[in-house]
Structures are given as C-alpha cells and as structure tokens.
Computed example of a mutant assay.
Amino acid sequence: MDSDRLKDYARSLGLDCLGIASSELAIPTKEKKICPLAAGQGIDRYTPQTLLENCRAVIVVLFPYYVPTEVPSNLSMYTQSIDYHLIIQNYLKLLQYFMEQEYPQSNHYLCADTSPLCDRYLAHQAGLGFIGDNNCFIHPIYGSYCFIGSVLTTVPLVPDTPLTKECFHCGACHKNCPGSCFINSNYDYEYCKSYLTQKKGDLTPPEIAIIKKTPLIFGCDECQRVCPHNQYIPITPIPEFRKNRILQLQRMDLLSLTNNQFRRMYGNRAFAWRGKSILLRNLEYTDKKSKTP
C-alpha cells in the first residue's frame, strides 16, 4: 500500500522525516557496531514480529531536536527539553490514530527508544540516513541531533529505499571523544562519557578523569559537536523541543530539594531518571574547584 497519505499527514504535524522499513529484516554484517547498546539480543533486534504478530511494515520517524544557544550548559542537548520519550510517544499516538482511521482492521505497536529493536538500523532501512563512525544515526539535513521513533503496523506498506550516502570518515569524533571510546573502529561504551554520567555508584579515577574533561554533568555531545555533518543544520521544527528548556543545574539548587521535591520538579526530564545523587556526584567531578582524583 502507498504511504504518501501517511507522509502528508506526518508533515502536517511538523514531522518531515518519515520512512517505511520492511518487517523482514536481514541481520547486518556489522551487527555489534550498528547496535552496541540495543536492549534486545541477536535476532530479537531485527524481528518486529516478536512485538507485533503479523507485522507487515515499520513506520520510522526521526525527531530532530537541535536548538542552538549561546548560553553555557552543563546538560547534554537531548536532555534540555521535556523528556523526549514523552514527546515522541505523543506524536506516535497521533500517527497510530491516523492509521487506524485509514485501515480500521489494522494493529500497531509503538516504539520510542525502549524496545529491543535496533532503531538506527530501522531508520537506515527506511531511507532516512546513515550510521556515522561515532555510532550516531545521521540525517542528511538534521545531522545526528535526532531521536528515532517507530510504529509497527500490520498494514503492508511499501518500504522505502536505503540511502547510499555515508559518513565522511574524517576522524573528528575519534579525536575529540573524552574517553577515547572509539578503538580500532569499534565503540567501547564503558569509556563513553554519556554512559559514565549515568553509571551508578562510585567511579574509578580513570572514569572520573573522563567526566572532568567537559562541563556536562549528564550526557556528552562532543562527538556530535565536532561532526561535520552537524555543521549549519537547522533548528528543530518540532515546537516541544524548543520550549521549557533547562540549560544549567546548580549544586545548591539540587541540595535544597528533597528527593520527592526533585522528582516533582524534574520527573518529566530525561536527566532525572537516575535521581539527584548521580547529578550531584557529577557536579562534584566537573566543578573547576574540585581536586583531581
């Protein structure tokens, strides 16, 4: 079935990056590189039918979130707005409702970054971009500052064609990674600053040294910041990512809150899921006055 009406409807919502992937996916030869942190294991990453019986196609949507600012921030850009999971789910529900009106007998399953499926591979198969050397998914216009959401459907939509474009392989992400986690063209997440800022418990001196290399206390944008594919990209067309932004968290502000107050104030933010203590720990590490461990 033709997907043009669906794409027109998505554009009316401000979603101009929608593609269709086949529900019959081949496991890529570079499986570990493509999905090093996927929740699923092996074949589950590439089998939509485990989530939706009789799945016939996957509707894949990119959600650009880039918002430039000259104000210094200690939070990764992806955490500065309301939690992206909530924003993506709201839009996917609208797409699901549209499909149910168009195809009353259809069934659907929504995926917003928490399913076992390999989101980046689905987005590639849907013709929306390519996977860079920094393991980020890159769109030709919006760069890598994009979230990925999917709607599994029993409607047999015609798949789009994957792009042949690929990363510049310039090495900028490798050279600027605080943890040097790109080793021999592989990605070692245990040295990724974004991972370490979310890791529970006490960190080792080498891990602390990685966190101290940049001001961010949650996440890490370095490999995206230096990527040539992210130069001169437009601001996000999705208004939810432009509103209610938080750029800085301060130690005294967090210390003044009880855990319940923290959850009430920041519970709808992506940086809050690990709790207040992790943020305070990272603030201690990134404070210029803190001692080198």
Results as ranks from 00 to 15, higher is better:
residue 4 D to E: 13
residue 10 A to H: 08
residue 16 D to T: 15
residue 17 C to L: 08
residue 18 L to Y: 01
residue 20 I to W: 03
residue 23 S to G: 06
residue 23 S to V: 01
residue 26 A to L: 14
residue 32 K to V: 14
residue 37 L to I: 11
residue 39 A to P: 06
residue 41 Q to K: 15
residue 42 G to K: 07
residue 46 Y to D: 06
residue 47 T to H: 08
residue 51 L to D: 02
residue 57 A to T: 08
residue 58 V to T: 12
residue 59 I to P: 02
residue 60 V to D: 07
residue 62 L to H: 08
residue 63 F to T: 06
residue 64 P to A: 10
residue 67 V to R: 01
residue 69 T to S: 14
residue 73 S to V: 06
residue 74 N to D: 04
residue 74 N to A: 04
residue 74 N to M: 05
residue 80 Q to G: 06
residue 81 S to E: 02
residue 93 K to P: 00
residue 101 Q to W: 01
residue 101 Q to F: 00
residue 104 P to W: 05
residue 111 C to E: 07
residue 112 A to K: 02
residue 113 D to V: 05
residue 116 P to G: 04
residue 118 C to P: 05
residue 127 G to I: 04
residue 128 L to M: 02
residue 131 I to G: 11
residue 135 N to I: 13
residue 136 C to W: 02
residue 139 H to Y: 03
residue 140 P to H: 06
residue 143 G to V: 08
residue 144 S to T: 07
residue 153 T to Q: 06
residue 157 L to E: 07
residue 159 P to F: 04
residue 164 T to G: 12
residue 164 T to V: 13
residue 166 E to C: 13
residue 176 N to P: 05
residue 177 C to W: 09
residue 179 G to I: 05
residue 183 I to Q: 15
residue 185 S to V: 09
residue 188 D to L: 11
residue 189 Y to G: 04
residue 191 Y to L: 10
residue 194 S to E: 05
residue 194 S to N: 03
residue 196 L to W: 08
residue 199 K to M: 08
residue 203 L to Y: 07
residue 204 T to A: 13
residue 204 T to S: 15
residue 209 A to S: 15
residue 209 A to H: 09
residue 211 I to V: 14
residue 212 K to H: 08
residue 218 F to I: 14
residue 222 E to W: 11
residue 226 V to M: 00
residue 227 C to T: 12
residue 227 C to P: 02
residue 230 N to E: 09
residue 234 P to K: 06
residue 236 T to N: 00
residue 237 P to C: 01
residue 238 I to A: 02
residue 246 I to R: 03
residue 247 L to P: 01
residue 249 L to S: 08
residue 256 S to M: 12
residue 257 L to C: 09
residue 265 M to E: 15
residue 265 M to F: 12
residue 271 F to P: 07
residue 274 R to T: 14
residue 274 R to V: 07
residue 276 K to T: 14
residue 282 N to F: 09
residue 282 N to K: 03
residue 282 N to V: 09
residue 282 N to P: 03
residue 287 D to E: 10
residue 287 D to P: 05
residue 289 K to V: 06
residue 291 K to L: 14
residue 292 T to E: 13
